[in-house]
């Protein structure tokens, strides 16, 4: 490590371990101030209302009474097999997309962080999926994967990888993998940019010192890059996980949950409950369940990650 560690003021280091020092609290509040009002009004309040909605029988309708019904919605949900089925699918989707996205994006970010020629162009091109509005992304992929006149099937057939066209989005065995590939495609730029920004923040002198010690590329990656990136990796993977679990627009346009419910994600399920059938209370209860499960999940993830810090 660099020599700067030695100069760390002991008072500061000790103080930051104890939570809630009054002076720091006051200073922190100042920094929070500009965000506070809009966030309370437009995020915290609607969120609390949304969460509370799960304990009511709120339904769409003009002048419909809403009653507090305690845990009735949750009791009903417990027996809703379709909802739990969608959870299972959602879990497969979330984990596959997040992991693939991370691995692919890390590889790309590392490549783009080297001094290759044309890397400026490459960096911009790598952001393409991000620059496209989701409506377009979904429709475009539907056409790319089209069994009759989509280029993907055309290419596969000309390479003799398959002898008959595959309807990727309509076939029971390929639908989920196909939407996962599209999910990875859409989310890669975001993850790549974040990791790249993290890589750029790593102090070069660390590598130079390691190179002097004769450490190879793999060694440097494992003992410098990864530990230095840790906070960013944790942040982006947990966010990716949440977003992927919650995403539904893409899959909605690609398959609408079909074929045979093979791609019915939990969010799609809750969305239908609220917007198609008008059961706001029940849909909010589903949202509450998702919040709890994701938070438990993340707590485990973050805890084990953060523990390796010590």
């Amino acid at each position: 490590m660099s020599t700067a560690t030695l100069t760390a003021a002991p008072e500061q280091a000790g103080g930051s371990k104890r939570p809630g020092r009054p002076k720091q609290n006051r200073e922190a509040i100042f920094l929070f101030l500009p965000a506070l009002l809009p966030v309370l009004l437009l995020s915290v309040y609607p969120l609390l209302r949304g969460i509370a909605l799960g304990f009511t029988d709120a339904r769409a309708g003009l002048n419909v009474d809403t009653n507090f019904i305690g845990f009735d919605n949750f009791a009903k949900l417990l027996h809703n097999e379709l909802f739990w089925d969608s959870f299972r699918i959602g879990l497969i989707w979330t984990l596959s997309v997040t992991i693939l996205q991370f691995v692919a994006a890390l590889g790309l970010a590392l490549l783009l962080n080297t001094n290759l020629k044309f890397r400026g162009v490459a960096r911009t091109l790598a952001l393409i999926p991000w620059a496209m509005p989701p409506v377009v992304v979904a429709i475009m992929w539907r056409l790319l994967l089209h069994p009759t006149n989509g280029p993907v099937n055309e290419i596969l057939q000309s390479l003799h990888l398959t002898d008959h066209p595959i309807n990727f989005l309509g076939d029971f065995s390929t639908a989920l993998p196909a939407v996962i590939v599209v999910g990875v495609w859409v989310g890669m730029p975001m993850t790549t940019v974040t990791l790249l920004a993290g890589l750029q923040g790593i102090d070069r002198s660390l590598y130079e010192a390691a190179a002097v010690d004769g450490a190879g590329a793999w060694h440097q990656f494992w003992y410098i890059t990864l530990p230095q990136l840790r906070t960013v990796i944790i942040a982006i993977t947990s966010l990716d996980m949440i977003w992927n679990f919650n995403s539904f627009g893409l899959v909605y346009v690609l398959t609408a949950g079909g074929p045979g419910g093979k791609t019915m994600l939990p969010m799609l399920f809750a969305y239908n409950e609220a917007f198609r059938y008008g059961n706001f209370g029940m849909a909010a209860a589903m949202g509450d369940v998702m919040v709890v499960i994701i938070i438990v999940f993340l707590a485990f993830y973050l805890r084990s990650r953060l523990r390796s810090e010590a």
Binding site: R142, H146, P147, T148, P165, N167, L169, G170, D171, P259
Partner: peptide, 12 residues
């Protein structure tokens, strides 16, 4: 295969 496609997808 057409049974798994949308109406406009079978036009080509």
């Amino acid at each position: 295969t057409s049974l798994t496609q949308s109406g406009s997808d079978v036009l080509p």
